[in-house]
């Protein structure tokens, strides 16, 4: 009895039931083989045999990759032409230091034209360059590139509050340098073409319409961590603006394109929150744009008479300018 017990323990089940042997053997080979295959396959995957993970970006931005690609920064030529490109780029990203006489707020060209004016769907400069001169309904005439840039200084950069009190005068070197930069960005772009990724995308209206109160909730959840609960932006330890202001005295003024709800909604949908473009629903983008564009900001430099007159002359469509929200007249400007 004792030895039988021991043998059963040591010899295993097969000894007692010999016919099981074949099946178990096959099973072991199959399982072992399967496991080995799995291990080897995953090793091979790791070694990059199936996919070259070392080089392929993990989530390529397919939409962006299909757009026109401006030249790399490292390919700016040497010599005077290259110097002008670099000056233009410096103005574009650090406008207050390099064109400080004409900047009256805390934003830079690159705050609204992302990645130094390269990013598709944030009104990239390569697309703008080939589209001008063109007719604009804002001033009802053919506009040159200089006119267009002057517009962004006047309204988006709030030049009225700058040291010089206005945009750079006609023919100023600031225009020349910016245009040289844009021209270089558009290297290889077809002239006169309507390029995909130009301007900001146009958002379809939603059935709910837009509403600042709903937008405030979106703002608190999705924007305030960067742009500040009061929309005034945030500074680093040296007092330098890292997150630009969205309203208030240091923001773009009432004449700016971004002050129109539809324009802002398109920009926000494609580009904000930073690094999470296209993550908001259309409804959220419209609502948060409405919230931002119903806040007070520097006055419209075109206003000569009353706000009502200016509203009639220059503001229609999707703008809160001249309207009343809870009894407050919108558009009076910031101190």
């Amino acid at each position: 009895m004792e030895s039988e017990e021991r043998e059963r323990v040591e010899g295993g089940e097969e000894r007692a039931r010999p016919l099981m042997g074949r099946g178990v053997r096959t099973a072991i080979i199959a399982i072992g083989g399967g496991a080995a295959l799995f291990v080897i396959a995953s090793l091979a995957f790791d070694a990059g045999i199936f996919s070259d993970r070392g080089e392929v970006p993990m989530s390529p931005d397919v939409a962006q990759a299909q757009m026109f690609q401006p030249p790399a920064e490292t390919s700016i030529p040497d010599g005077p032409a290259g110097d002008a490109v670099r000056r233009g780029q410096a103005i574009f990203v650090n406008t207050a230091s390099n064109a400080g006489d004409f900047v009256g707020n805390g934003v830079a060209c690159a705050s609204c034209h992302l990645d130094s004016g390269r990013r598709a769907n944030s009104a990239p400069m390569w697309a703008a360059w080939v589209a001008y001169p063109k007719y604009r309904s804002k001033n009802k005439q053919i506009n040159t590139m200089e006119d267009r840039i002057k517009g962004c200084f006047t309204y988006s950069m709030n030049a009225q509050a700058s040291k010089s009190g206005g945009p750079p005068p006609a023919g100023h070197a600031v225009y020349k340098d910016l245009e040289t930069y844009m021209h270089w960005l558009a290297t290889g772009a077809p002239t006169g073409a309507n390029m995909p990724g130009a301007g900001y995308p146009t958002l379809e209206k939603t059935s709910l319409g837009y509403e600042p109160a709903r937008g405030q909730k979106v703002f608190v959840a999705k924007c305030a961590a960067c742009h500040g609960a009061d929309g005034a932006g945030q500074l680093d330890i040296n007092g330098r603006i890292v997150f630009p202001p969205l309203w208030g005295p240091n923001s773009f003024n009432w004449g700016a394109g971004m002050a129109r709800v539809n324009t802002a909604a398109g920009f926000i949908k494609a580009n904000m929150p930073l690094g999470q473009g296209s993550s908001l629903t259309d409804q959220q983008a419209w609502d948060v744009a409405a919230y931002i564009d119903s806040q007070e900001r520097p006055k419209d430099p075109r206003q000569t008479g009353s706000i009502e007159e200016n509203a009639k002359a220059n503001h229609g469509g999707d703008s809160y300018y001249g309207k009343r929200i809870d009894g407050r007249l919108v558009g009076v400007g910031t101190p």
Partner: peptide, 26 residues
């Protein structure tokens, strides 16, 4: 310093601040 916008990656400094010295509180 520049990120890699071709894959939707903003620069680290655009959130973590110049020199990545941070932006209080977040």
């Amino acid at each position: 310093l520049d990120g890699d916008w071709a894959r939707g990656l903003p620069s680290c400094v655009s959130c973590h601040g110049p020199s990545t010295f941070g932006v209080a509180p977040s």
